[in-house]
Amino acid sequence: MARAVASPKSQVPRPSHVASPAPAAKKSTLELDRLIHERLRLGIVSALAVNPRLTFNDLKRLLKTTDGNLSVHARKLEEADYIAVDKSFDGRVPRTEFRLTAAGRKAFEKYLAHMEALIKAVRE
């Protein structure tokens, strides 16, 4: 029966049912970008991958999350230079906009490739 070692929620669990995991899968697991892997951060990056920019409120509505949660996770992505934050005023109302940086897009594409490699390795 397929079993995997328990791991924190934010991590991809390592399978113990495969005696010798395929090299690609092993490599992918080791190189997995933990920053993007967290669900809300993955949502932020995925949404920005198909939109040139989104406001804080748009992302909040789209990802059905809270102000605090979105702020914390967006800050982590910003610190990693995966997203850029532009602050401005719309009249007197502050407006915060996010966009994906080149580094963020590259990291997202790499993450996608890792996920695909993991699936492919197990199927082969």
Partner: peptide, 19 residues
């Protein structure tokens, strides 16, 4: 715990749905 490939499939599904 969920096998790793199932987790990867779920992640890709989440990405697709979000996009």
């Amino acid at each position: 715990p969920q096998p790793i490939h199932e987790h990867a499939i779920e992640s890709l599904r989440f990405i697709r749905d979000t996009m």
